[in-house]
Amino acid sequence: MRRLHRTVGVTAAAFVIFMVVSGLAINHSNGLGLDRRHVSQPFLLDWYGLDGPETFQSYAAGDDWLSFAGSQLFLNDKPVATVSNGTGAVFNGEMLIAAGSDELLLLDPQGQLIERLPWGPAGAEKIDSLGLSDNGGVVVASGGQSWFADQDVLSWERSNEAGLSPLWATPASAPENLQQAIARQYRGSGPSLERFLLDLHSGRIFGPIGILIYDLLALAIAFLALSGLILWARGRRNGKQR
């Protein structure tokens, strides 16, 4: 029993120390700022399967570029907001406007969010594309119909008049170096250190086999506690007999 206890103890020692240290860090992750810092090492990003964005579309907006990289919206190479299923982006001389399938984002020329508008005039379907009317007003194509916003983008009016011919936003190819910069940024915002530690602490980072190994090591620690108690009790009894 003593030899087995020693062998298991030595094997589990490093694991116990690791669990204590990582557990303490997780318990204080907020104070340590681990939830605000992100993993950026390429091999860890590879391990998490964080490749470049699956979808990438850029739109020329004045002198700038608005790009949808996955669900991240970039103004040139600066991430400015999240938006799902980007459908278009325009600049009307005052504001940058970006559309997802079910929301619109209004930004100032520096990329600061003015307002995020859920898309939902009565009877409207999802946003298909975004454009500008002759007078610079925002126009949305949705379910085969055109919706025209007022100047403040507060209300919408549906119109199918033949004379109105909005200029619809069309994707364009951004400069190669800009595309690369965006891909780097996109990939760089990996999991938080807190998440990484949680995955390490639970064994999930190694997949199902990791969880199994951690289970075995947890059982080994339980065994150490039990065998330690038994050895202690035996030693005490032998001491009394002497």
């Binding site: 669990m19 557990g23 859920p118 998440r195 995955d199 602490h201 639970s202 064994g203 289970d215």
Partner: peptide, 22 residues
């Protein structure tokens, strides 16, 4: 510490209780 073996994997899904229109 052992209890934390059971920490759940983050799910990451949004729950919509009511839309803005509703």
């Amino acid at each position: 510490m052992i209890v934390s073996f059971c920490l759940p994997v983050p799910a990451g899904a949004a729950t919509v209780y009511e839309t803005q229109a509703e």
